[in-house]
C-alpha cells in the first residue's frame, strides 16, 4: 500500500522538476519560440500513452491465454490509464496546434490516430459495463484490446498515406541537449504517475470484485449415503 504511493510521489517530484526546468531554464526553440515548451508535457504523455497501451496489449494476451482474473484487472487498469493519457495527449496536441499551425485541429497523422485510439479504448471501457459475467467480460475486453492495438499502426499508416497528398509531414528536428533533459525527466515522471494510476485502479477493480462476489465456494454439505 505504501509502496504504491511511492510511485505517485516520485512522479510528482519529477514532473515538478522537469516542468520548472522546461518553463524556465530551457531556452526557447529556434522556430517555435516559447510555444515549444508545450512539447515537454505533450511528447512525454504521447510516449507513455503508447507504452501503456502496449502494456494493455500484453496483459490482454496473458488474460486470454491463462483466463486468470488478475490479468483482466491489469488490462482494465492499463486501458483506463491509457485513456487518461490519451485525453491529455489530444488536449496538449490541440493547444500546441493553435499557435504553430494557426488552427485547433488538423487532420495530422498523429493527432488523428490518437483520436481514433481514444474512441477505441473508451469503447472497450463502455463495452465492459454491459457485461455482467466476469469471465465473458474478461474475454471480450482482451479480444477487443488486442484488435485495437493491432489496428493502431494500420490507422497510422492509413492516415499517413491519406494525408501524404496534401502536405509534408512535419518532423521534429534534432533537439538541443537543453530540450532533451526536461523531456526525459517528464517522460519518467508521467511513467511513474501512470504506474501509480494503474496500481490504484487495479486495487479498486480487485476489491470491487472481492466485495461483490463470494470467492470461496460454499461449505461442503454432508452427503446422505445410499
Amino acid at each position: 500500500m505504501k509502496k504504491m504511493h511511492a510511485f505517485g510521489l516520485v512522479g510528482l517530484a519529477l514532473i515538478i522538476v522537469g516542468s520548472i526546468y522546461g518553463l524556465t531554464a530551457s531556452p526557447p526553440e529556434r522556430h517555435m519560440g516559447d510555444v515549444s515548451r508545450i512539447l515537454y508535457v505533450h511528447v512525454p504523455t504521447a510516449w507513455n500513452c503508447l507504452l501503456i497501451y502496449l502494456f494493455a496489449f500484453g496483459f490482454a494476451i496473458a488474460s486470454l491465454w491463462t483466463g486468470k482474473q488478475r490479468w483482466d484487472i491489469a488490462t482494465t487498469a492499463a486501458i483506463e490509464t491509457g485513456v487518461v493519457l490519451n485525453i491529455l495527449l489530444l488536449g496538449t496536441g490541440m493547444i500546441f496546434a493553435k499557435p504553430t499551425w494557426g488552427i485547433w485541429w488538423d487532420w495530422d497523422v498523429r493527432l488523428t490516430t490518437s483520436l481514433i485510439a481514444l474512441i477505441f479504448y473508451a469503447a472497450i471501457l463502455a463495452l465492459r459495463t454491459f457485461i455482467d459475467d466476469p469471465n465473458r467480460r474478461a474475454t471480450l475486453t482482451a479480444v477487443t484490446c488486442i484488435i485495437s492495438f493491432v489496428d493502431v499502426p494500420l490507422i497510422y499508416f492509413g492516415v499517413r498515406w491519406w494525408r501524404s497528398l496534401h502536405q509534408i509531414q512535419s518532423s521534429p528536428e534534432t533537439m538541443a541537449e537543453t530540450m532533451v533533459f526536461p523531456m526525459r525527466v517528464n517522460a519518467f515522471a508521467v511513467l511513474f504517475i501512470s504506474i501509480w494510476f494503474m496500481l490504484l485502479r487495479a486495487r479498486i477493480e480487485r476489491s470491487k470484485l472481492e466485495s461483490d462476489e463470494v470467492v470461496e465456494p460454499p461449505v461442503r454439505r454432508a452427503m446422505a449415503t445410499a
Binding site: 516542468s19 518553463l23 526557447p28 529556434r30 522556430h31 517555435m32 519560440g33 516559447d34 510555444v35 515548451r37 508545450i38 508535457v41 505533450h42 504523455t45 487518461v84 485525453i87 491529455l88 488536449g91 496538449t92 493547444i95 500546441f96 493553435k98 499557435p99 504553430t100 502536405q167 509534408i168 512535419s170 504517475i193
Partner: peptide
C-alpha cells in the same frame, strides 16, 4: 509548412497546456 521566423509569445498556450495536464492528472 513551418512558418517563417520565430513564433513570438504564445505563453498563454504554454500555461494552458501545463494547467490542463496538472488538472487532469490531479
Amino acid at each position: 509548412m513551418a512558418p517563417e521566423g520565430v513564433i513570438i509569445g504564445g505563453w498563454s498556450y504554454v500555461i494552458a497546456a501545463y494547467v490542463l495536464v496538472g488538472v487532469v492528472l490531479a
